[in-house]
Design a protein around this nucleic acid. Sequence first.
DNA 1: TAGTGGTCTAGACCACTCC
DNA 2: GAGTGGTCTAGACCACTAA
Lengths: 246, 246
Amino acid sequence: MGTTQLESVPEPKYWHLKTVISEALDSDFAVGEILPNERELAARFGVARATLRQALEQLELEGRLQRRRGVGTTVAPPRMGVDVSTTQHQWPGTGEESWQSVDCAVATPPAAVARLLDADTDETVHVVRRLRVSGGQPVAAELLYVPASSVPELSAIENPSGPGRARAVLRELQRRVLDGQDRAVELGSARADDAKELDRLPGAPVLVVTTRYLSEGRTAAVSVATYRADTCRLTFGDSGDLVMAS
Amino acid sequence: MGTTQLESVPEPKYWHLKTVISEALDSDFAVGEILPNERELAARFGVARATLRQALEQLELEGRLQRRRGVGTTVAPPRMGVDVSTTQHQWPGTGEESWQSVDCAVATPPAAVARLLDADTDETVHVVRRLRVSGGQPVAAELLYVPASSVPELSAIENPSGPGRARAVLRELQRRVLDGQDRAVELGSARADDAKELDRLPGAPVLVVTTRYLSEGRTAAVSVATYRADTCRLTFGDSGDLVMAS
DNA sequence: TAGTGGTCTAGACCACTCC
DNA sequence: GAGTGGTCTAGACCACTAA
């Protein structure tokens, strides 16, 4: 311990543990390799299991580890870059094959969404559920809220209420003029239903991407997409080359 | 409980607690109000303190609560929207007053940054430290890595090595042509030094925004900005219509 | 059925803030 | 010094996965 410094600032044990394990991951383990179980690791480091877990939790938060109940703790691959740029101003589901529609229902929006839509909480909206898959893994679950008034033609359509209906809503949307969109990213924790589709436990950390689609001076749709924070790096590729040709 | 369903899926206690407290926050508490302390809350709900803390941690992660050691747990205000859009393609520190330069050093970049710079790990870079303040609060800490080769004139400049030097580096950068930039957002945990400037504990969840600045066909600078995930919502205002002039 | 991570408990002590 | 949240312990049991 040549460099230790009279430990005037006692580092928490779990923090130190995290550093040690992190370095071990870099040097001694390969991606996908399985670590010793928590009880053994705790014993090996001479700490309580809860303390060891605190370190593992941090490393999982940083995308270094992946833990699965009943299986074990494995070394995670580097996060995958997921493009969420608004390349051109496009309605959802336009050119992309990465999203697949799951189903579609009619409901009243939650308060936060209603606020974004400038709508009342009791106005009915189509709720399209979609799943984004990348590299064979589900990376995001989305709820797309489309007020009935944004796609009035749809009331005439028959009602399969499944993926077909979802695609119908998207098709109707795409016939409209998209004036613009704005987007926000924040940290959240996965709701039970999203967690299930993302193959995570409820409460898992997620990056919530909220998008407002503007058409004819109003908000025509709102998308709330929750990305797995452990496996995803959201990329915005604004790389210079004339973003707009207006 | 008319709707309960034979509790075939036993919800974890902390998850249920989180829901209960969350609803209480909506109805019974005002922003800034201080909650009963953890020991009392745990007793009131009939759970161990650790379990109660698990619920509070989640709520803090979601930006609903703010906890400060030695003080207490308070109801957090709604997250503030922080603009991180690349409105026009601009070098850092161009029009904005929200960032203030802290200092500047010369060092070799960490491996991850060197990779983005297409540089060797032993090439020297200027490291500019900046702090972003919004609403009277520090919201982000940034390290801007500028390879010495990107601003060759600077070697001639005298060396105050403080905020003055930082501004000199930025000034030199701004004289160059900016071809484009790309950006990524991911979840991280605050390093000790960032945590200190952000007035958080080490390991606090942060949103890490990595920006590459491209000039003359190469990466001229890399910025790594860590935003407080509890208080910030990152906004990207791509609102179609040429950014308004009203 | 054996082994894994996830939840929970009831304590203890520490670091910090404020009076 | 009193009171807060932060860390840590040594157990226990549960839910899940895979052989």
